[in-house]
Amino acid sequence: MRKAGVISFLVVIIGLLSFKAKNRYEFAVPEGWPRPEYNFKKNPLSEKKIALGRQLFYDPILSKDSTISCNSCHLQYTAFTHIDHPLSHGIAGRIGTRNSPALMNLAWGKSFMWDGAVNHLDVQALAPISNTLEMDEDIANVVHKLQRSAAYRKQFYEAFGDSVVTGEHVLKSISQFMLTLVSANSKYDRVKRGADTFNSREANGYKLFKQHCAECHTEPLFTNQKFENNGLPVDTSLNDIGHMKISHNAADSLKFKVPTLRNIEFSAPYMHDGRFKNLSQVINYYIMGVQQSPTLNPLLRKGIYLTSNEKVEIIAFLLTLSDKEFLFNPALGFPKK
């Protein structure tokens, strides 16, 4: 009798522990990568919070007329960008002023947006939610709408132990889902791990890449996280001055955050205004189109010279950055009820 009591007590304890362990989510840093920038201590990942964040990411309830979700402009199969749209489309077909960037490896991000306007992943979602050209909603009203939904109240309770929805919890859970968008299993990564080999084209492309591009598109994230002017002529219909808008410093004029090149095969069109439709246009631009200006990065001042064969090789290397496992991972896709 007494023994049975102790055993069932133990079973309950073990059950509770395994529930906790199951709910906890271990963020794995790929081998050889730097430490993430994101402070996980302030927002510890859990399966429930990630699931809630995923639900929110795919739910148009975040927009004013419930037509636009984050997924509208950030689709998984195209590395979480808006394919075919040079400038992103928001609510009621309104056209934004910038190309939606691919979303991945955000845990390493030091700042967000092309110009660095957002200083922390947790507050990122506020920008599209309130942008009148995007979701045109207000976070207080989003909270109000979520609070009215019994299903969401339950999910918030399961995730945070509190069915009262707050702005903080909405944003932290969206962050949690975005933090799981890790792409680190491309052919390039397998080669680095010794599990695959480059063919000769790819190998030559990698050499050329390290010579001409890696200073800015630095491994393993393929961005140095800095703001650089890569010489794009100003589109006078947008007059986008880049990071200077945020820093108020003329030395930052026309500098944009260096984007990652992982999954670049799938994230066309390219650049902050989506001006290039394919990789060959981008390479031709670096060879022939770079415009001199006071803030142009010195690396690009002399110009890059590549033979047509070398162009093909660089592109062959860029294609080794595609990570099908990431693009088709069901855990990152539309949540099934």
Binding site: V118, V123, I129, I139, T166, G167, E168
Partner: peptide, 22 residues
Amino acid sequence: NVSGTLGGDLDPTKGMYWSWQS
């Protein structure tokens, strides 16, 4: 200001947080 989202009086629903620039 660079610590992400916070709760209580600092919750972004209080209307005292810029959305387009953190």
